[in-house]
Amino acid sequence: MSFKNKTVLITGASRGIGKAIGLRLAAEGANIVIASKSVEENPKLGGTIFSAAAEMEAAGGKALAVQCDIRFEDQIQQVVDKTKETFGGLDILINNASAINLSNTETVDPKRYDLMYDINVRGTFMVSRACIPLLKKGTNAHILTLSPPINMDMKWFANHLAYTISKYNMSMIALGLAAELKKYAIAANALWPRTTIATAAVQNLLGGEALMKMSRTPDIIADAAYYILSKPSAICTGNTFIDEEVLAKEGITDLGKYSVTPGGQLYTDLFV
């Protein structure tokens, strides 16, 4: 499946996993729409929609940078309208934007709770909703959401209930869309890493430099996404994929190149 001139909209694509997926598909000749908030660089996070767009064009694709806070429907619609205006349509949506807070129920700040739900749940739903009309006209149309398998082991609820149910909601949206949109041959799947991924969230919020060294690079998610999105949309739908398993089915089992610390210990991600 060629990505040449395919149009891909990615939320939260100015850095981290979203940017890595954009670069991977841009290298295949895709048009990348970067829908993110960052227009000025935050030293702790790095990257803006404009710097990401420049990198994606340097990688071989075309890029459209649109400032967007997915909590607001008017901004979402503006991205969709500009996507259609610039590239004529949409073939792939990547729901990557997400907020994280690992507080327990008693200590979680209501504003943090609302932020997670506005971005992770409502944002994922509303972006998907706004993109469906264009995806119906797309070629081998896919929706890919960065969220985990729904693992009902209570250990995932005990310590950070608010975050857990927000991410499981994202996965339920992916599975629900797979059922709803199957008649249009629009695929909807979720993808999650086996190990922690070296991103600003891991560096700043979860485990600092020590956890970064026990993580894999975002490239493993980008490669897994590439293979999922290459599959026929009428068949490859309704899955909650793990990156390692996707690559294994492609015959890729030596994953050493993705480790931040070659040969080092890896830390298993949440929900796996």
Score class of each variant (00 low, 15 high):
L64N: 02
K82S: 15
Y258F: 06
I21V: 10
A188F: 02
S51M: 10
N5V: 00
N151M: 11
L93A: 01
A174R: 09
G238Y: 12
Y184T: 04
N5M: 00
G176L: 05
L206S: 12
E55K: 07
T124L: 08
P149V: 03
F157C: 02
T268L: 13
I94C: 05
M56S: 02
P193M: 01
F72Y: 15
V8K: 09
W156A: 03
D91V: 10
Y113A: 15
T145P: 01
T164Q: 06
A97Y: 00
S166G: 00
P149D: 01
L135F: 03
I220H: 09
C236I: 03
I100E: 04
V121Q: 00
Y168S: 06
K249L: 08
I70R: 04
I21K: 01
G238H: 00
Y226M: 00
K213Y: 12
K167L: 07
P262T: 13
S230N: 15
G61M: 01
P232C: 04
P218T: 12
K137N: 11
R122W: 10
E41P: 07
I92E: 09
G60K: 08
P218A: 05
T195G: 00
I165Q: 09
M154R: 10
L191D: 06
L45D: 05
S166F: 07
G251S: 13
K249Q: 14
S103G: 11
G208N: 07
C236D: 12
A26D: 01
T240I: 10
P218F: 03
L266V: 12
K84Y: 05
